[in-house]
Design a protein around this nucleic acid. Sequence first.
DNA 1: GATACTGGTTACCTCAACGATACCGGCCTA
DNA 2: TAGGCCGGTATCGTTGAGGTAACCAGTATC
Lengths: 120, 120
Amino acid sequence: MAEPLDPDMFHPMCPSSALPFQIGDKWTGMIVLCLAGGPRRFTELRVPLRAITPKVLSQTLRTMCRDGLVTRTAYDENPPRVEYELTELGRSLLVLIDAVREWSDQYLPAILAARESHQV
Amino acid sequence: MAEPLDPDMFHPMCPSSALPFQIGDKWTGMIVLCLAGGPRRFTELRVPLRAITPKVLSQTLRTMCRDGLVTRTAYDENPPRVEYELTELGRSLLVLIDAVREWSDQYLPAILAARESHQV
DNA sequence: GATACTGGTTACCTCAACGATACCGGCCTA
DNA sequence: TAGGCCGGTATCGTTGAGGTAACCAGTATC
C-alpha cells in the first residue's frame, strides 16, 4: 500500500528545530508526515522517528486518537498488528504543515542569520 | 499611531489553547499579534497579556530580538521609553497565524467534539 | 526450554519553561 | 523626602513534557 518510510526523513541536525512553530506536541507533526502516505504500524513509525521511545510514541498516538487526528485499528493476528491512520481531520493538518514549510523555505535562513549576527 | 490594545484581546478561557499549534514560545504568537498594529511599549504589551510577568515578557522579547522578529528602540527620555516593533521577518509570521486561524475556524470544533466523545 | 517479535506498560528521573514575589535605578512631581 | 512612573532584574519554586530502563503477555519458532 505505502512505500517504506525513509529512515532518514527526520535528521537530528535539521535546522527546522529553529522554526518558531510547532504542531501539537514535540512529535505530532512528524507523525502526521509519517502517516501522510498511508496507514502505518507502531514499529514502522519508530524507524523514521529514531529518537522516540515507545512510551512517548504510544502517549502521543493516544493523544492524537483522542483529538480525532488518527484512528487506531488492531487486527487479531499473530504477531499482533496495529495500524494508525490519519483521519480527514488529521490530514487537514498537512495543509498547515505545508504552509509552515513554505514559510521556512523563505524565512528560516533569515532567523539563522539573525542569530548568527546577534552577539550577546 | 496605533489605537490602544484591547485589554480583553486574549481571553484566558479561549479554546484556542486546544489548537495543535504553537508559534514560538508560549507568548510569542500573542506578542506578534499585539505588535501587528504598530510599535508598542513594554508596559503597553502587559495590558492585553495580563497574565504575563515582566520577567517572562522581557525574556520572550529578548529571544524575539535575537531571532530578528522584533526590534527594540530605547528613547532617551524620562520616564524611559522603549518601543518594540515587528520586523519584516516578524510580520511574515502574520501570514502563518492567519492560516492557523482559518484552519481553526474550520476544524477546531471537530477536535473539541472528538475530545468530548472520547470517553476514557 | 529459550528466544524472538509485536505493541505496548511501569516506575523513575531530568531539565527547562514558566510563574510568584520582591526589588532596582533614574528621573520627576508633590 | 516621599512616592510614582518606566523598564526592567534577581531569586526562588513549581510543573509537566519528555527521556531512560526495565518489563510484560501472547504466540511462534528454534
